[in-house]
C-alpha cells in the first residue's frame, strides 16, 4: 500500500472538507475559463502561454486537493499528461517545420498567408502560445502527480 493510500485511509490532509469540495466544484469552471482567457490574450495584454497553462494546470491541482489525489490521478489516467506534452511540442515543431516545407525559413509565420490564412503572424503566434499552454498544463499536472506519488517521482523533468 503506497504512502498516499495510507494517508487517504487515515482521513489525511486532502479529503473530507465539505467547504473545499463545494467551493472547488463551483469555482473550477471559472478558473479554467480564466486560464484560457489568459492564454489567448498574451499578445495584446498580460498573459500568454506559460501563465495560462499554469492556471489551467491549477484546476487539476485544485481537484486533487479537494477530492483526493489518488482519485484524481485515476480519473486523469497515467497517460494524459504525457500525451498532452507530446501533442503540444509536436504542434510547435510542425508549425516551424511546416513553414520550411512551404519554402521559407524555420518558424517564419508570414509564409502561412500564402495558404489563405489572414494575419498569419498574429494567428501563428496565438497557435504557438496555445500549444505552449497545453504543454505547461500537461507538465504541471504530471509533475504534481509524480511528486505526490513519492517513490516514482524524480526521474525526469
Amino acid at each position: 500500500m503506497s504512502d498516499a493510500e495510507r494517508r487517504v485511509e487515515r482521513g489525511g490532509p486532502y479529503v473530507g472538507s465539505p467547504i473545499i469540495m463545494a467551493t472547488v466544484r463551483v469555482v473550477m469552471p471559472f478558473v479554467f475559463t480564466f486560464g484560457l482567457f489568459v492564454m489567448f490574450h498574451g499578445a495584446d495584454s498580460s498573459g500568454g502561454g506559460f501563465q495560462g497553462g499554469v492556471i489551467v494546470g491549477t484546476v487539476v491541482l485544485m481537484l486533487g486537493i479537494a477530492f483526493g489525489i489518488e482519485a484524481t490521478r485515476d480519473w486523469i489516467g497515467p497517460r494524459l499528461p504525457v500525451a498532452l506534452v507530446g501533442i503540444g511540442v509536436l504542434a510547435f515543431l510542425f508549425t516551424g517545420i511546416g513553414s520550411v516545407l512551404l519554402g521559407a525559413g524555420f518558424l517564419e509565420y508570414a509564409v502561412y498567408g500564402d495558404l489563405g490564412i489572414p494575419h498569419p503572424s498574429k494567428y501563428g503566434i496565438e497557435f504557438v502560445e496555445l500549444a505552449i499552454g497545453v504543454i505547461v498544463a500537461g507538465i504541471v499536472t504530471g509533475l504534481f502527480f509524480a511528486i505526490a506519488a513519492g517513490t516514482t517521482g524524480g526521474e525526469s523533468a
Binding site: 497517460r79 504525457v82 500525451a83 506534452v85 507530446g86 511540442v89 509536436l90 515543431l93 516551424g96 517545420i97 520550411v100 525559413g105 524555420f106 518558424l107
Partner: peptide, 25 residues
C-alpha cells in the same frame, strides 16, 4: 537546404518527443 541550422536543433527535439510518445504505446 538553407534552414539547416534551425532544423539541426529541431530534429533531436522531435526525436525526444517521439521517444516520449512511443513510450505510451
Amino acid at each position: 537546404m538553407s534552414s539547416l541550422p534551425a532544423l539541426l536543433v529541431a530534429a533531436p527535439l522531435l526525436g525526444s518527443v517521439l521517444a516520449l510518445l512511443a513510450g505510451l504505446i
